[in-house]
Design a binder for these strands. Structure first.
Lengths: 341, 341
DNA sequence: TGTTGGCACTCAATACCCCGGAGTGCCAAT
DNA sequence: ATTGGCACTCCGGGGTATTGAGTGCCAACA
């Protein structure tokens, strides 16, 4: 089994070299750069075996080897560990994020620091509403027939909607309705609050034609609204310029995906499930055009609830340990900030 | 002077051909494609003259000519007119924008339609707060010592801030303060409202230590806050993939600029001044790295007030008449929507 | 059985050269 | 002022030679 160990060491070395040089790596340069203690010929034998098993691949006969998706997968799963941040990097993260003034700012700063640490495109999903609770509901009459409904959530997010109501709706009725709504909904998880509000509306206004129904409809709509649930911040796209070659093939579709937030969310999607660090390599993903890009993502949120997802998108040829470390570190720090606020 | 006219016609033809083929254009192909009614030799003479005057330039001896920034400038200013949208394009704009549900949605849809019409990167600034008026101020007590201050503006934007207050601040005082604030500020342009609020605070609370001062400070901060004033939406970056060559030189810095909203605003800045269609060609701009990109922008807003700026960023080699037409059309349509709401 | 040195072979990348063609500038003729 | 003619320039594409990193295989060895 000592032999097997060395083979894995060879694979690890291939991945590392290829990531840093971006050129197919041959047996000779490999033994020069890494102290493998064996001759190039031996390495060649190992390489042939690794290729048979599908971990590496040669672009053409008599060229060096390049890791396949399967090779990267093995590397990530078994041959490396998440690289912890250096203290300088940790300082950078904290000093960057500590200055944030509100939730939006936290998200935007996270994107920035993440893209700078990893030199990749960073993606941060705004904390989802799903687990947040209702802090307050406010009604403001704009004109005789228009009412502004404001929903304030525990995450600090504020959603507002304008609803049309019949004009026989005076200030007293307004205050009354406001009180009722808050009594019912305040403090509840939004799914629960939405249910209770609907009951309230049906009771007070069985025909469904009155102001209460209109307001409740607006509120529930705001609660489940996908647009707000799926907000995303993207940053570091300038890093795509370093792709150099394989440009039109890879960068175009990627830029498109980055604008299609639905696609992006799907890409990052599974990550939020367990809250664990998720790595999706190349063609493992659902999109043909993104077969040469990898996604590293993780859930984050206060008190270990995974409210949302955050991560980076980059070429399959990327520094997995370092990037994973950065993603994890930023996620932890952001979670801590959300914890405190 | 007939001669001069022809020279300009030659310049126009050069710009048009170069934009559509992206290759330096020579005298022979020029007379073939455009009915200039003269021989290639004559065109060559004209070209030599145009080159002397700095309107065109040859990449190397015995190659065709390429317009200079100065050439594009003359083209835009005197040799062409803004191309009106076709009825199909107009339909596309209206059907795209009519579905918008709120201000954010209008902006996002504008970015999208603009980038699709022009095949360039589109940039839309959110309507600035500067000219908007205060519609309502709302106070909500979150905990004993924390107060949520909500500022609702005529543009439909809602700004919120949390302030800490002394805990001897009961509900009655809260209602009282709310009434006062609204009496003073409601309906006023924000600059005016901010001034009046400050007076109110000084009167009610000369020491500057009480709740009124804290709330007013939060409000005025929200009013002048640059971050909200400078929000920008960017779309169509995938169009950058078509740059093909001159990639790393041009696209990298451009992507950076697109993320630096401050830079972007400066680029588009002057446009909002008159509300007129502004074209900035290549090195005319303030940024060295963007010397091969042009910006076409215009102000927009309800009732011909230029509340904000909108436009596209693309290579100097772009279809100016068509792009200008699209920018103008979208700006007009968005303004109309803002007018109605 | 696994490792090693040697050796012939392969093939992308590079350099080199050549040539065609598009384009120019200039000049003399109209 | 315009035009046709002509010599000249130079980029770009296509072919060929060379290089060198890298491979696979084999025989020798521990």
């Amino acid at each position: 089994m000592q032999q097997d160990d060395r083979r894995l060491a060879v694979l690890r070395a291939i991945v590392q070299d290829y990531v840093s040089t971006s050129e197919p790596v041959g047996s000779k340069t490999l033994v020069e750069r890494h102290r493998l203690g064996v001759s190039p010929a031996t390495v060649r034998n190992d390489m042939a075996a690794l290729e048979d098993e599908g971990y590496i691949h040669q672009p053409h006969t008599s060229a060096g080897r390049v890791p396949t998706d399967k090779g990267y997968r093995l590397f990530v799963d078994r041959l490396t560990t998440v690289k912890p941040m250096s203290s300088a990097e940790r300082r950078a993260i904290s000093s960057f994020l500590d200055g944030a003034v509100d939730l939006d700012d936290v998200v935007q700063r996270s994107v920035r620091v993440l893209s700078q640490l990893t030199h990749q495109v960073a993606v941060v999903q705004y904390p989802t509403l799903a687990r947040s609770t209702v802090r307050h509901i406010e009604l403001v009459s704009l004109t005789d027939t228009r009412l502004l409904v404001v929903l304030i959530l525990s995450t600090g997010r504020v959603e507002q909607r304008v609803v049309e109501v019949a004009d026989d709706f005076d200030d007293e009725a307004l205050a009354d309705l406001r009180t009722q709504l808050n009594q019912v909904a305040q403090g509840g998880v939004i799914a629960e609050a939405a249910r209770l509000l609907k009951e309230l509306a049906e009771e007070a206004d069985p025909a469904g034609a009155g102001a209460t129904s209109a307001v409740v409809d607006a509120l529930t709509e705001a609660m489940v609204d996908h647009r707000s649930d799926e907000r995303i911040a993207v940053g570091g796209t300038a890093n795509l310029a370093r792709y150099g070659d394989s440009f039109t093939t890879a960068v175009g579709p990627l830029l498109e995906a980055l604008e299609e937030h639905v696609v992006l969310l799907k890409l990052m999607g599974e990550a939020s499930a367990g809250g664990a660090l998720t790595v999706r390599i190349g063609a493992e993903g659902p999109y043909e055009e993104l077969s040469s890009t990898s996604v590293i993502a993780t859930g984050y949120g206060p008190r270990d609830e995974a409210l949302a997802t955050l991560g980076v998108v980059g070429p399959t040829r990327m520094d997995y340990p370092g990037t994973m470390g950065a993603v994890r570190a930023v996620a932890r720090y952001v979670s801590k900030i959300l914890d405190e606020s």
